[in-house]
Computed example of a mutant assay.
Amino acid sequence: MQAEFAIPPGLHAYDVPYYFPSIVAPLFQNTSFDNAFAQSFTSFGISLNRNVKIDPTTITPPWKKWEMRHTEMLFNSTATGLPLVEPMETSDALLERCQFWLSVANLTAQ
């Protein structure tokens, strides 16, 4: 299950409040976004299929397996403050970086 959390500023660990909103309030306050983000993981945990929705009204569109054209789900917001949840292809540059780290994994104990 590949996803990109990109709510601005989109820095590492800025997704943590969306997993634990009772501890730290998320920067982007939007119930539709919160439900789409959280239920994607919950659905996968329950059924091993992120497309089997707990709540069929969530805004997450159908989510292809990553092996199919390197599809991941983008979790973001628009410039006007609306939730943006849509599939996207992983960039070639990111795939190249991943391939590099895979090639040195046995040297880095990762």
Rank of each mutant, 00 (worst) to 15 (best):
Q2E: 13
S91I: 11
D15I: 06
W66F: 15
F44D: 06
T90C: 13
A79Q: 12
M68V: 13
D92E: 15
T80R: 10
L82M: 13
P83F: 01
Y19L: 12
M1Q: 08
N49Q: 05
N35P: 03
R50D: 01
Q39K: 09
P83K: 01
I54V: 15
K65L: 09
A3C: 10
L74N: 13
S103V: 07
P83Y: 05
Q99K: 15
V24A: 00
F28L: 05
I54C: 02
D55L: 00
H70Q: 11
D34V: 04
E89D: 08
T71E: 05
T58A: 00
S77V: 11
S43D: 11
N49W: 06
T71H: 01
A105S: 10
D34I: 08
R50N: 04
D92H: 11
W66A: 12
A36K: 02
N30E: 02
L82S: 14
R50A: 10
I23V: 15
I46V: 11
H70N: 15
L84Q: 11
N49K: 01
W101N: 08
Q39L: 13
P26T: 05
S22Q: 08
R97Q: 14
C98Q: 14
P83D: 05
P8E: 10
T58L: 02
S43K: 03
P8A: 12
A79S: 13
T58S: 01
H12K: 05
V52R: 11
P17T: 01
A79N: 13
T31Y: 01
A36F: 02
M88S: 12
I23R: 05
N76T: 09
M1H: 02
Q29F: 02
L48S: 11
H12Y: 02
G81C: 07
P83M: 08
K53F: 06
F37A: 07
S43Y: 01
F44P: 08
S103D: 13
T108C: 00
T90S: 13
N106Q: 10
F37C: 07
Y14R: 04
K65G: 13
D15Y: 04
D15Q: 12
D55K: 00
V85A: 02
E96G: 03
L102F: 02
S32L: 07
P62L: 12
S47C: 01
P21H: 02
I23M: 07
R50E: 06
D15H: 11
P56V: 11
A109T: 10
S43P: 09
F41A: 06
H70P: 03
E67R: 08
P21G: 02
V16D: 01
Q99M: 09
T71A: 03
T60Y: 00
S77R: 14
V24I: 12
L27K: 04
P56H: 00
E67G: 14
W63A: 09
A3Q: 04
M73L: 15
I23E: 10
F44Q: 00
L107G: 00
T78F: 02
K65D: 15
E4N: 07
N49P: 02
D15F: 03
P61M: 08
